[in-house]
Design a protein around this nucleic acid. Structure first.
Length: 441
RNA sequence: UCCCCGAUAGCUCAGUCGGUAGAGCAGCUGACUGUUAAUCAGCGGGUCGCAAGUUCGAGUCUUGCUCGGGGAGCCA
């Protein structure tokens, strides 16, 4: 028994139909749309790999098949047997001349119409919204980006090391965490970053990356925020800030090249202007210091920006649009950056941190740094940031036992995906977005 | 937490000066052999977010609440 074949034919993915012109094939999927014209049905059938038009003439099929299709609603599931032929008039270049059609299940009236819908309705029906052309394209690109990520690190000798989701305390101290009960009277938190554990793992394997979901309980209500999102965090021993920046730009360029190669039709479905993406396939990316960036802001409409502050969304947009590819901003005022960043030996007021800012207003794709590797300095930072030392003893241990210069960064998967796909809201870049006041479905 | 906007049919919206509810899509019935969100004819479909107030009369005006959207802060 297998559901992969029917009447002696094995199902052919719609994406592969062009390789089977003239052959009799089986397509299994869902009815995306039906246009019925008397004795002729035009079925748009989707199977997850693509959409094909199947043409069904009353003269070629059993009357029962013809009537069954006539009664089929949008998103009804079905099996279609037909001959593949090229046709100028068909979207996609090939269509199916149907000889058999069997409805597997007649769908109830489908809530998502062939029309525009509002975000509240679509998010409430996210489980069905995923079936629309645009969402399927984003999901495919997401999978492609994830493959590119793993491929990039594997090829460079980085090992994937998972970090825990439950943590005993804040990784960076400042941001709000989701708190939960952890047996008896103890509390646990959902991790907001795997980085500290990544540092420990890098001291074992040399070059590692952490890849998994992270959680932020900030009450952010913007298109650039989710409460649960996926982050890739490489960490490498014997890396300084320059090594981190080279890794970051080659990493992002690799992802872009991979998607441009593998997902042309998805980008076309998304109506993404690929000429905006193509420059980012090449390295190097421009580098500016924080000081340079502030000067640029002062000269480009933000004369009131105060030196020493972190950049807000409007500032990131201006900086990101200054170049044809993402820009690396490095050497930040230490006060606005995390405790674990190493100070610049040339100017101890600066931290050896780097942000990668995308163009077109997509904001910060990457935040990274060379880490503080000196025991005494890190001890001081913990005090300055008023962090509980007990919680960081193990982290200090990494500076007790064979400390080395090291660094890494974190890349937000959904932000990267939004930028690549030209999607203006992160909620479309994860299958089931978790947002402020929204956790269904 | 703060600022702005919104809530009317299953969905997207219109609803004028305060006078008793409309369209398109979806659904149902029918017509049509090349449709591209097909078209055409017909049918059914309403707690106007909730509560109070003003008024002879409120979808419309006022207040409060709830829910949603966008943005700020914070971050990826």
């Amino acid at each position: 028994m297998t559901e992969q074949s029917f009447e002696g034919l094995t199902a052919t993915p719609i994406r592969r139909l062009a390789d089977h012109v003239g052959e009799r094939v089986l397509v299994q999927g869902w009815l995306y749309n039906l246009r019925s014209k008397g004795k002729l049905h035009f079925l748009q059938v989707r199977d997850g790999t693509g959409i094909v038009q199947a043409v069904m003439s009353v003269a070629d099929v059993a009357e029962a098949d013809f009537e069954a299709v006539k009664a089929a609603t949008q998103e009804s599931s079905l099996r279609v047997i037909g001959t593949v032929k090229t046709d100028e008039r068909a979207p996609g270049g090939v269509e199916l001349t149907v000889s058999r059609a069997v409805i597997v299940h007649v769908a109830e009236p489908y809530p998502i119409a062939k029309k525009e819908h509002g975000p509240d309705f679509l998010l409430g029906n996210r489980h069905l919204w995923l079936r629309s052309k645009r969402q399927m394209a984003i999901l495919r690109v997401r999978d492609s980006v994830i493959r590119a990520i793993r491929e990039f690190f594997h090829d460079r000798g980085f090992h994937c090391v998972d970090s825990p989701m439950f943590t005993p305390s804040a990784c960076e101290g400042t941001t709000t965490l989701f708190q939960l009960d952890y047996f008896d009277d103890s509390k646990a938190y959902l991790t907001q970053s795997g980085q500290l554990y990544g540092e420990a793992s890098a001291m074992a394997l040399g070059k590692i990356y952490v890849f998994g979901p992270v959680f932020r309980a900030e009450k952010s209500k913007t298109r650039r925020h989710l409460t649960e999102f996926w982050m890739v965090e490489p960490e490498a021993a014997f890396y300084d800030l320059d090594d981190v920046m080279v890794l970051a730009e080659e990493f992002v360029a690799h992802i872009v090249r991979h998607v441009l190669r593998e997902n042309r039709s998805d980008l076309a479905d998304l109506e993404r202007d690929v000429t905006k993406l193509e420059p980012a396939a090449g390295t190097p990316y421009p580098r500016v210091t924080y000081d340079d960036a502030v000067r640029y802001l002062h000269e480009h409409g933000h004369a009131d920006f105060r030196y020493g502050d972190d950049f807000g969304a409007p500032h990131e947009t201006v900086l990101g649009d200054a170049h044809d590819r993402p820009v690396l901003v490095h050497r930040w005022p230490a006060e606005v950056k995390a405790f674990y960043m190493k100070r610049d030996p040339a100017n101890p007021k600066l931290a050896l941190g780097v942000d990668m800012i995308a163009s077109e207003g997509y904001g910060e794709l990457i935040g990274g740094a060379q880490r503080e590797d000196d025991f005494g300095e890190l001890e001081k930072r913990l005090v300055e940031h008023e962090l509980p030392r007990e919680a960081f003893e193990w982290f200090l241990d990494l500076r007790r036992y064979g400390s080395v210069p090291h660094g890494g960064f974190g890349l937000g998967l959904e932000r990267t995906l939004a930028w690549i796909c030209g999607v203006d809201h992160l909620r479309e870049c994860i299958p089931f977005p978790r947002m402020l006041y929204r956790i269904y479905p």
